[in-house]
């Protein structure tokens, strides 16, 4: 057990992508990739402490009825764990403090931002300082996007990458900060490892044909200052094999592995080097 990379994917109340996230973790080399229904955590039968890599998958927590992931964030912040005096959020805080990895994709990213886990400037995990709101187009959109990587970012997941191509599938993906100062902090500290860009990954863009939601500064993903907490709107778990690529029947030189897998491989490598 000591030498196993152990990933957990939380499911329930409207998560949708738990199976493919667990698959991505496994393909990237994690020995354990458990899909755990939140009721198991709240019943105290499973504890986050037994894992290294927490995945918050995409979906529609509680239907996004109060705004994306709002009701889900409320649950995670206030739900008690049976048979103990702690709340689930206490386990999350301990997990973070132990130097482990958290990845939120789409609804999982929205959840992290609304819980205050991202960008969490100066390690303040209790205050929401940014949000994800309705796309400028006002509609849900399923489309592939080009993402330029900030190579100076501390982000563990994007280390060594330059650009990746992934699908977005959301109605509320526009990243906005509480103030221009917060945005400036994110930019100067390189906490936005992924930006929507043109097809050559040249520069972040606000152009609607590339930036699907109008996110400020083209921000598609945000990490905390340790680089171990990362959230993004595009779906890396949706491109782990060449047949996921929308043009795989015509682009003959596509590698077998999809670009999204790289993020999970970086996570597994980090865990093997630092946490085992």
């Amino acid at each position: 057990m000591a030498k196993q990379v152990r990933a957990i994917v939380i499911s329930g109340n409207g998560t949708n992508c738990e199976r493919e996230v667990a698959n991505a973790c496994r393909l990237a080399g994690a020995e354990v990739a458990d899909i755990v229904h939140i009721s198991e955590l709240l019943a105290g039968r499973v504890r986050l402490d037994d894992y290294h890599f927490l995945n918050l998958a995409g979906g529609f927590l509680d239907g996004d009825d109060l705004g994306s992931a709002k009701a889900g964030a409320n649950r995670l912040l206030h739900a008690p764990v049976k048979g103990s005096s702690e709340h689930l959020i206490d386990q999350v805080r301990r997990f973070i403090a132990a130097g482990k990895l958290v990845l939120g994709v789409c609804n999982g990213f929205q959840l992290m931002v609304k819980m205050g886990l991202l960008p969490a400037l100066d390690g303040d995990f209790d205050r929401q300082s940014a949000t994800l709101t309705f796309n400028d187009g006002g509609r849900f959109l399923d489309r592939w996007v080009y993402l330029r990587v900030d190579t100076d970012s501390p982000c563990v997941f994007t280390a060594g990458l330059k650009g990746i191509y992934l699908p977005v599938r959301h109605g509320e993906g526009k990243f906005v900060t509480e103030s221009p100062e917060i945005l400036a902090q994110i930019e100067t500290r390189h906490l936005a490892p992924l930006r929507y860009s043109d097809g050559e990954y040249r520069a972040a863009t606000m152009e609607a044909s590339f930036n699907p939601n109008g996110s400020v500064a083209g921000i598609a993903g945000v990490c905390d200052q340790t680089g171990r907490l990362f959230g993004l709107m595009p779906h890396p778990e949706a491109y782990v094999h060449r047949t996921h690529h929308p043009r795989w029947t015509r682009e003959e030189d596509l590698p077998e592995e999809g670009m999204g897998l790289w993020l999970y491989q970086n996570a597994v490598r980090f865990i093997r080097e630092k946490l085992l």
Binding site: N16, C17, R19, E20, N23, G58, R139, F140, L141, D142, R143, W144, P167, R169, H235, E237, A238, V240, T243, H244, P246, R247, W248, T249, R250
Partner: peptide, 23 residues
């Protein structure tokens, strides 16, 4: 209309409703 429907969740859609050089 097609783009308002998530056609890729579950990561099994190998032929999507829109194909070609510009998807």
């Amino acid at each position: 209309v097609v783009r308002r429907y998530d056609h890729e969740v579950q990561a099994g859609t190998v032929l999507k409703p829109l194909v070609g050089v510009a998807n």
